[in-house]
């Protein structure tokens, strides 16, 4: 699915203490393209990713994913968009600590309205695919960082999203594990011709895993449009 942003701005905070996280971002990502977002800390990478994932709405500008204007979506449609169209992966895994691996992976399918039987089978399959067939009923505090992130990847990909948004997915992992997790994501992208936006600090990772590198400085794109 193609992504298109036109003059997107995002301002945080109330009047007087405002932070302009994004200052007029315009970018186009073609369907099936893999893009890396690079930039210093605080440059607005996560902010842009959250807007693309429908977790937040821009202060101004236009955003469309797969030809659909995100501005036009109702709250309900936005929730549906988050559960089925995009898959998001975070640096800090963001698993629900009190739930098992299967239950975490099951969650997007719950909101997508799939039956429990279906969900359990799909979740098990997704966990087996990331090599966690033996960890189905473990909770996140019973798993290593690499395992947790693989559960998160399984959760992000279980609904077969056409857009994958990864915010430093390997930031907390050693290089070997990082490679394994990245391969899982890239396999999915290739298999389903999905679009990938990967936020990273790692120049090498960006070069090897993506087709194009976009650089952000202070909420503006300076390179790679």
């Amino acid at each position: 699915m193609a992504i298109r942003a036109v003059e997107v701005r995002k301002v945080y905070g109330a009047k007087g203490a405002q932070v302009e996280a994004l200052r007029g971002i315009s970018i186009e990502v073609a369907e099936g393209e893999r893009v890396a977002l690079l930039g210093k800390s605080g440059s607005g990478k996560s902010t842009l990713l959250n807007l693309l994932g429908g977790l937040d709405r821009p202060s101004s500008g236009q955003l469309s994913v797969g030809g659909r204007d995100l501005d036009q979506l109702s709250m309900r449609e936005m929730a549906r968009f988050r559960s089925t169209t995009v898959g998001m992966i975070f640096q800090s895994f963001n698993l629900i600590a009190s739930r098992t691996a299967v239950e975490n992976v099951e969650l997007p399918m719950v909101f997508a309205g799939r039956s429990r039987r279906d969900r359990l089978a799909a979740a098990r399959q997704a966990l087996e695919a990331v090599g966690l067939g033996a960890r189905l009923n473990h909770r996140s505090h019973e798993m290593s960082g690499g395992e947790s992130q693989r559960v998160a990847v399984a959760r992000a990909l279980v609904n077969r999203p056409r857009v994958v948004l990864a915010d430093e997915p390997t930031g907390n992992l050693d290089s070997h594990t990082a490679r394994h997790v990245m391969d899982l994501i890239l396999d999915h992208v290739r298999e389903h011709a999905a679009t990938l936006v990967l936020v990273t600090h790692d120049e090498e990772l960006a070069a090897t895993c993506t087709d194009r590198v976009v650089r952000l400085v202070d909420g503006q794109i300076i390179d790679g449009v």
Binding site: M75, R82, S83, N94, I96, L107, P108, F111
Partner: peptide
């Protein structure tokens, strides 16, 4: 809060 955020991220509506 985090759990609620995660649920929203994976498709929960406010109504849910």
């Amino acid at each position: 809060r985090r759990e609620i955020g995660i649920m929203k991220a994976v498709g929960a509506t406010n109504w849910h």
